[in-house]
Amino acid sequence: MAIRRYHYARDVDEALSLLLAYEGRGALLAGGVDLARGPGTDVEGLIDITAAGLGGISRDAKKGLVIGATVTLEEIRTSREARDYLGGFLTEVMRHVATLPLRCMATLGGAVVSAHPWADIPTALIALGAEVAWRNEEREERAPLEELYRRPFRAIFRRAVLTEVRLPAWGGAFAFEKVSRNAGDIALLNCACGLGVKDGKVAWARVAVGATPYRAARLTGVEELLVGESPSAELLAEAGRKAAAEAKVGDDLRASAEWRRAVIPALVRRALERAAREVKGDA
């Protein structure tokens, strides 16, 4: 089935009513990168939400970040709000994602909904404890992204519009690491780690690994190992080794499970070391 109509939605209500009217044969787009690469054969109508009022980056009352679904990755990378959040952690993550022309097109909402297992953004968002909001025909709903990905989220977004991503304030530091064949390529493995330190001990830890080749997941066993301990070089190395044991890894055409298991310790250790260096001890 060829694409028959292209709509420009003026607000979320219009986007949602068009989406519902297509009964599964419509698709929302902002950047449109994934859809242009190959829309599903059942897509008849494209609904452009670029002008639906879902742009903008702002700080919330608790000094977290609120990012609209149609904000592009390059807008995030160059924004003052992202530079001021967690010492520019998001700015650094965006620099690792694809290349400039694709970052000028791709949006945060697109990255969340496409949820490619190799993507860098879900890994960073899961480590940050991101919450996403969406509108369906009944109400506005919210959920932590980590929880949403355990639900049938593709079915949810066939009848809902993702509106924003909320990132909580953290009194610590995060770092992102990625291994890929070249700078613009997709990840063979990626990892985002956060640490808060109080009185010389780890007060909280967040560790997420993605492109394993499965979608990013937190490694709670590694987080538990770190909490309450002094962030010494030995502890962070042990955390890396435990990450390799805890992460679910597999083979794909880019790398073997064996290779991934061998690389995870160094990747997680590096991210933890960088977070530990940057943390200010005010968790």
Binding site: V33, L35, E74, P101, M105
Partner: peptide, 14 residues
């Protein structure tokens, strides 16, 4: 801003 025209729907030029 630079974009890939191969992955941009023509309708987005509006």
């Amino acid at each position: 801003r630079p974009v890939r025209s191969c992955l941009t729907f023509a309708a987005k030029a509006k």
